[in-house]
């Protein structure tokens, strides 16, 4: 009756299985960097994909890993965008990388303060509260036009070369390399984070907060922590937009932006980090293609896609890619099981 003992080594392998690099991941990043040389003519849209992907990655951290749904993630995106634009315009911090970090920190501070609003309540309350925060910020940016440029946006921003060397150009060559590098580094950090004991605790909080607290986890503190980190990611995404376009306008805070973001993540699937990136690629290329075809129909197609995805997906949020990912995971497990069996 007693099941057989198990080797510590096998248990270690199983435990770290989620963190192992899949060959497809390497292909993905190789392709992304190869695009620097292969598709110079597409660098403008690729830059947009890079910051949108980072923005969606940020939403994935709170939604896919901690179960916090948001319809106002543009609050942090916009805050980061304005911070970066203002730093450059008033020549406070001229070097883009440093300005990017500071913009991220500013958004983190905002995320920390507002995180306390999303601790309690149902998904619906969270949707409303996050939506409200973004609306408030947009209105503040509108009100304080002397600082933000109001409805006209912040004009006359000029961005200095990255690290004092790489000058931004109108074709997006520097912009794409810069954005992709930032995305890749932040992705590596996020990947590390979600596969750590801290990341595991986030999954547990998402799955069952009652049990999480019953094993000694301070649920609120974990949610505050990940919300703050995610806000920083969103802020950096916004700062990338501001730096690569040398512009920031009220639109960075818009409801549409938050809603599109949720859509991007649903297209790609939440909870495995690549969803936001894949979603961003599909979303941008679809938008590009469809709006060139029939400008006024773009919202129609995206709306239709949304309905289909949600209907096909088994779960409301964890998307239609779940079955595929589960299958991939299964294969991974199998290989692992085979290897550990061979060792015994």
């Amino acid at each position: 009756m007693t099941p057989p003992p198990i080797a510590v080594r096998t248990a270690t392998e199983w435990l770290s299985a989620r963190a192992r690099w899949h060959p497809l991941e390497i292909v993905f990043w190789f392709a992304a960097f190869a695009a620097i040389y292969l598709f110079p003519a597409r660098h403008l849209i690729l830059t947009e994909i890079a910051w949108l992907g980072l923005f969606a990655l940020s939403l994935d951290l709170i939604l896919g890993y901690a179960g916090i749904i948001s319809l106002g993630h543009a609050a942090f995106f916009g805050f980061g965008a304005y911070t970066a634009a203002l730093l450059a315009k008033h020549e406070i911090i001229e070097e883009p990388v440093l300005a990017l970090l500071i913009s991220g920190c500013a958004a983190m501070a905002l995320g920390f303060v507002t995180s306390f609003l999303v601790l309690r309540g149902s998904d619906l309350t969270r949707l409303m509260v996050t939506l409200g925060v973004a609306l408030v910020l947009r209105e503040l940016a509108n009100r304080y036009g002397w600082l933000t440029g109001g409805a006209d946006g912040l004009q006359g921003v000029s961005i200095k070369p990255v690290l004092g060397v790489f000058r931004f150009d109108m074709f997006g060559h520097t912009g794409y390399t810069y954005s992709l590098t930032v995305l890749f580094i932040l992705f590596l950090v996020a990947r590390r984070l979600v596969n750590s004991p801290f990341g595991l605790s986030l999954l547990s909080v998402k799955s069952n907060p009652l049990r999480s607290s019953a094993i000694g986890i301070s649920v609120d503190a974990r949610l505050v922590a990940i919300y703050t980190v995610a806000a920083g990611y969103a802020g950096i995404a916004g700062a990338l937009l501001a730096q690569t376009t040398a512009f920031a306008s009220l639109e960075v805070f818009s409801f549409d932006r938050s809603a599109d973001l949720l859509l991007v993540l649903i297209i790609g699937g939440a909870g495995y980090l690549y969803g936001g990136l894949i979603g961003a690629i599909i979303f941008k290329f679809m938008q590009d293609y469809l709006s060139a075809l029939t400008p006024q129909y773009w919202p129609f197609w995206i709306g239709l896609a949304l309905v289909v995805i949600v209907l096909v997906g088994r779960d409301r949020i964890t998307s239609w890619t779940t079955p595929i990912r589960l299958m991939a995971a299964r294969l991974n497990w199998r290989a692992l099981a085979r290897r550990s069996a061979e060792r015994l």
Partner: peptide, 17 residues
Amino acid sequence: AVSERRGQGLDWWRIVG
């Protein structure tokens, strides 16, 4: 549960296991 009990639950740079 064990990593939380050991106070390593905020450890975000180490891989589980």
